[in-house]
C-alpha cells in the first residue's frame, strides 16, 4: 500500500463494521473467505481489490484463523482498536450463537440413535469436503515436486505416529522453508 492510499481509508462506524462482518460470518458454510471478498470489495467498497489482496496476504502469512485476522486488520484500518474489536466480534457472534444453539440440541438429543446416525452422515460429508480441499491445495503445489515429500512426511508424523504438532511444524517449516529458500535463490519461482 502506498503512503497515499493509507492516508484515506474511509471512516466506517463501529455498528457498520460489526453488522458488515456479521453478514460475512453468516453467509458461508465451511469458510467465509469468498464472501469476505465479495462484501468488502464489491458491495461495501471498503477496500479495493488490490488492498484486499494486500491485507489477505498478511492474514494468510500468519497462523491462526485467517478470516478473524482479516476482520482485525480491516476493522483497524477503518476504526482503530475499537473497529478491530467490532469487526472480529461481529464476524464471530452470529455464527457462535447458531453453533451453540445446535450444541444445545446435541446435548438434549445427541444420544438418540437417529441423531447419531445423522451426525455420522454429516461427518462423512465433512470429511469428503476436507479431502477435496486438501486435494485442491495439493494440485496448486504439484508443479514444485520438491515439496511433495513434505505432504507425505507430515501425514505420517501427524496421522499415523500422532506426534505433537508444534515440534512437527517447527521442523517442517525449517526444512521445507530451506528448500523453498533454495528454489527462490535459483529463480525457480
Amino acid at each position: 500500500m502506498s503512503p497515499d492510499s493509507r492516508k484515506t481509508p474511509p471512516a466506517v462506524s463501529l455498528a457498520a463494521l460489526f453488522f458488515g462482518f456479521s453478514k460475512i460470518g453468516l453467509s458461508g458454510f465451511g469458510g467465509v473467505l469468498p464472501f469476505a471478498r465479495y462484501y468488502l470489495v464489491d458491495t461495501c467498497r471498503w477496500l479495493s481489490a488490490e488492498e484486499f489482496n494486500q491485507l489477505l496476504g498478511l492474514c494468510q502469512f500468519l497462523p491462526g484463523p485467517n478470516v478473524v485476522n482479516l476482520a482485525v486488520v480491516v476493522g483497524r484500518r477503518h476504526g482503530g482498536p475499537a473497529g478491530a474489536c467490532a469487526a472480529a466480534c461481529g464476524l464471530l457472534a452470529g455464527p457462535m450463537a447458531v453453533a451453540l444453539l445446535l450444541a444445545l440440541l446435541y446435548d438434549a438429543w445427541g444420544t438418540l440413535p437417529q441423531a447419531q446416525a445423522m451426525l455420522r452422515g454429516v461427518a462423512a460429508a465433512g470429511v469428503g469436503l476436507l479431502f477435496a480441499t486438501a486435494f485442491r491445495m495439493a494440485l496448486a503445489i504439484r508443479r514444485k515436486p520438491a515439496f511433495l515429500p513434505f505432504v507425505a512426511l507430515v501425514f505420517v508424523a501427524i496421522a499415523l505416529l500422532r506426534w505433537p504438532l508444534p515440534a512437527v511444524m517447527l521442523a517442517g517449516i525449517a526444512l521445507s522453508g530451506a528448500v523453498a529458500y533454495g528454489l527462490l535463490r535459483k529463480g525457480g519461482e
Binding site: 458454510f29 467465509v32 478470516v67 464471530l92 452470529g94 457462535m96 447458531v98 453453533a99 445446535l102
Partner: peptide
Amino acid sequence: IAQAAPGP
C-alpha cells in the same frame, strides 16, 4: 455440527 452451521 460445525460444518452444519454457517461461519468461519
